[in-house]
Nucleic acid binder design. Structure first.
Lengths: 202, 202
DNA sequence: ATTTTATATGAACGAACGTTCATACGGAAG
DNA sequence: CTTCCGTATGAACGTTCGTTCATATAAAAT
């Protein structure tokens, strides 16, 4: 009959978002109920609606904040001029960011289809903006004659794909540490672009 | 003793499986109801239970048959001896198979977590077996000194990753046709492995 | 023609769903 | 101390969920 002492909205609000994120990542948006979120937060289900208009907004805000913080972090990232350096930087940035946002990345990838059409368009644009970052680096390197690639668009997607895969197997206690993985993927990307050999010959 | 020819189940059974596959691919397992499947098949919901013990079995059978047919198709595929040829063959095989099984591939990837623990273990083993196919080709090429790679396991996952990404953007009416895509990915994989240069120098 | 049986119906089950709301509490402001 | 308001409760809304089952139907077997 009484509210638990010490539970304030400025504490509950982030807990709702974090719990939704964790549960969506683990079980999927459609498989998680508002009651399940409430239980994990430690409130009754009705209280959730002080913090979100509905379940859909919980998902949308997770994806929106994730994509915006990803793009903002890249915008802050120091840029070098050489496309080759930029590739290395992009891979390092991408992997480091994604190592620290495992749940967000997973949800952002898996739950696109559970967004309302309107919300989907917003997120899809941001996703495409991020893809464009890599695409433009490749185009610059292609123009400078540094990369040997047949189709910059396909290579963009291929690199995004191999980077995305990391999220499916990386474990903090796995065989390889973060720096080693970053180094391996930088190497692979350069092989990938024929860049190493272009340098050696140049 | 029992009727075999012309029975309705021979027609309805595959329709149930196909409809479940299509709807799971489009909306996700958790978001599709048995009533929705029944409506699309054209029967009442109770009739579905003549063809599946429950909803979970519909999902499991989709994934099981997909993985088994994938592995069986590879087992039938002609094998060449040179690891370089084998890489090219594997990429061609993988892409051609996956071009023709878009829904199955998508469901197999997205709905793993909606499998019961027991069912998950079965599918996960088959998925790992398939991954091993590529891993062993890489190991063979590494042993033969044909590939320049630092970590065969990571390269395996990276190649799987970039191939998987194709499923997210390929469209039959897209800019690139199937043969071009296959050729591009074969090229990328060889760049990837340093194989082209190894050959040129050898 | 009659029996058998595979297949379908349509209603029903309890449970869970997202969401709403009147109400009660408790800390902050006066 | 009293008032106010943000925050929580707990019950309730109508809907949908997966699944079951007695019953009906029609094709196959005899």
């Amino acid at each position: 009959m009484s509210r638990t002492s010490g539970s304030f909205s400025n504490k509950t609000a982030p807990r709702v978002a974090q719990t939704a994120l964790r549960l969506f990542a683990k079980y999927g948006y459609a498989a998680v109920s508002m009651r399940q979120i409430a239980r994990d937060v430690g409130v009754q289900v009705g209280a959730l609606y002080n913090y979100t208009p509905d379940k859909q907004a919980l998902l949308f805000n997770i994806l929106l904040q994730h994509m915006e913080s990803l793009l903002a972090a890249w915008a802050r990232y120091p840029k070098r001029t050489d496309p080759l350096d930029q590739i290395n930087d992009f891979i390092q940035f991408h992997l480091e960011f994604h190592f620290s946002k495992v749940d967000e990345v997973f949800v952002a990838y898996m739950e696109l289809r559970n967004l309302s059409p309107k919300n989907f368009m917003v997120i899809e644009k941001l996703r495409h903006d991020y893809e464009t970052v890599l695409h433009e680096i490749l185009n610059a390197g292609l123009l400078a004659g540094q990369f040997r690639i047949r189709d910059a668009k396909i290579v963009t997607l291929a690199i995004i794909g191999m980077l995305k895969e990391v999220g499916t197997w990386y474990r903090p206690d796995g065989r390889l540490g973060k720096p080693e993985i970053i180094s391996l993927y930088q190497d692979m990307a350069l092989d990938f672009l024929g860049a190493k050999y272009a340098i050696k010959k140049g």
